[in-house]
């Protein structure tokens, strides 16, 4: 198993945002986390990415506990998260974004030998050209090739979200956490996004996607988890989860169930 959450709990004062949630993620799968607004989906992702510290429970990544690690360490270990509202560097171009995101690959490739490139930059020429090729691939994959010289501030909302995914991919994640990638997108953009995410899986990336839209994730996820009020109410094959009584009740209320 690639990743496992055991009894994950997060309390903010008197509010329990995530309560005793346990699940695992296998390599190469697309796992969906469903739930209405306020059910603790984003909190769960933030806990995994190290942006919040859990009140209780364990997070295990490739057999190693990662609770207490800083977000940048977790990114370096191969878990990268995108944001629901795209977080970008407004005054920079798309390519500049990709260059910044490429630093981690540079670190992995060279380690402390990076210091040598300060006095002898040509020592990293082949790594730089490899990174350039990767940038090109990822921009192509995320349908951003034409916008590569645009400033982030000039991008459409859909393109901003795609850029978030492209930057995350430059970090070479083994597990990519996507926080509501489809929210705010038009129908056409959602179709496009689905194709991109399938391509990512084909590149060997494991995806964990949260969404409150049932349709989009229903088509994409192999396996799903449903949350309501911070607790896990169902897990299993996506079709079964969506059909389960608890999920229908959480979405529609008891009367309709």
């Amino acid at each position: 198993m690639l990743f496992e959450a055991r009894g994950l709990t997060k309390r903010f004062g008197g509010l329990t945002a995530v309560s005793d949630v346990s699940f695992g993620i296998d390599e190469g799968e697309i796992i969906g986390i469903f739930g209405p607004n306020g059910s603790g989906k984003t909190t769960t992702l933030s806990l995994i990415a190290g942006m919040l510290a859990p009140t209780a429970g364990d997070l295990v990544w490739q057999g190693q506990g990662i609770v207490g690690r800083r977000p940048f360490e977790i990114a370096e270990m191969g878990i990268v998260k995108t944001f629901q509202n795209p977080q970008l560097f407004p005054e920079l171009t798309v390519l500049d974004h990709m260059r910044i995101a490429s630093h981690l690959g540079f670190k992995r490739a060279l380690g402390a030998r990076r210091l040598f490139t300060l006095v002898w930059p040509w020592a990293a020429a082949d790594i730089e050209s490899g990174a350039d090729a990767k940038m090109k691939d990822m921009l192509h994959l995320c349908r951003l090739t034409e916008a590569r010289n645009e400033k982030a501030a000039a991008l459409s909302y859909g393109a901003e979200k795609m850029l978030g995914v492209a930057m995350a991919m430059m970090c070479d994640p083994k597990l990519l956490l996507l926080d509501e990638p489809a929210s705010g997108l038009g129908q056409e953009e959602i179709v496009n996004l689905e194709a991109v995410l399938r391509d990512l899986r084909a590149h060997g990336v494991t995806l964990c996607i949260i969404d409150h839209k049932v349709g989009f994730l229903g088509r994409l996820a192999d396996r799903s988890i449903a949350l309501a009020h911070g607790a896990m109410i169902a897990q299993g094959a996506t079709r079964d989860v969506l059909a389960s009584d608890a999920v229908v009740e959480a979405y529609l209320g008891r009367k309709h169930a």
């Binding site: 942006m51 370096e76 500049d96």
Partner: peptide, 14 residues
């Protein structure tokens, strides 16, 4: 540059 422009994003990018 990542720190100057968006520290939080920088941190998630490692």
């Amino acid at each position: 540059a990542a720190i100057r422009l968006n520290e939080q994003l920088g941190e998630t990018l490692g």
